[in-house]
Amino acid sequence: MYNAIYQSHAGSWAITLLLFFIAYLLIVTNKDKAGKIVHMILRLFYVIMIVTGGWLLFAWYLSELTFIIKALLALALIYFMEVILTRAKKKNLDRKVKMYHWLQFGVTALLVVLIGFNVLSF
């Protein structure tokens, strides 16, 4: 059971990042209907990630501080992805704000991946 949930969680992360970049490119290139559809599918994968990640955290890793921090960073990463996409839809991103949000996204994504693959631990 653990392996199936773990693989679902890891796979949903990969698909989520791919869908995020596809949705962003569709929104930026003014393909609003396609961008909206991909964004809704992306939100479904957020739910899959949160459910499988919560199951892994509470069933196996609740006593490890590293994975609690990873869970909080993962929720922040989902927030940053949503902020980038919604502001891109509303065309509410100037150059400085856009760089700030992308920097937050990049640093948080890097930390989540490094903790997820046990490269970084506390």
Rank of each mutant, 00 (worst) to 15 (best):
L75I: 11
L114D: 00
V38Y: 04
W60P: 02
A10Y: 06
W13H: 08
G116I: 01
H9T: 02
L19K: 13
L75E: 04
D32I: 13
S63M: 05
I27V: 08
T66I: 03
W55P: 00
G106D: 06
L42G: 02
N30I: 01
Y24I: 03
A4Y: 14
F21A: 06
A109Q: 08
S8V: 07
V112I: 05
N92H: 05
F67D: 03
K33V: 02
L110C: 07
V113L: 07
N92Y: 05
V119N: 09
K70C: 02
D32P: 01
I41E: 07
F122I: 11
L56D: 09
L56S: 10
I37K: 12
A88P: 10
H39T: 05
W13G: 03
V28F: 12
R95H: 11
V119L: 12
H101Y: 15
L93V: 04
L65R: 08
E64N: 15
V119Y: 15
V113C: 01
Y46S: 02
T86Y: 06
N92S: 01
F21I: 14
I48D: 03
I22A: 09
N92G: 00
T108W: 07
K96D: 03
L44V: 09
Q7K: 12
K31A: 03
Q7N: 10
I115R: 09
I15W: 04
Y46F: 11
Y2H: 15
F58A: 03
A4G: 01
K36M: 00
F21E: 04
A23G: 10
M49V: 02
I78C: 01
Q104I: 08
V83R: 15
K36S: 02
V112S: 00
K36G: 00
G11K: 06
I22K: 13
A76L: 13
Q7L: 14
G35Q: 03
L56G: 11
Y2E: 14
I84F: 05
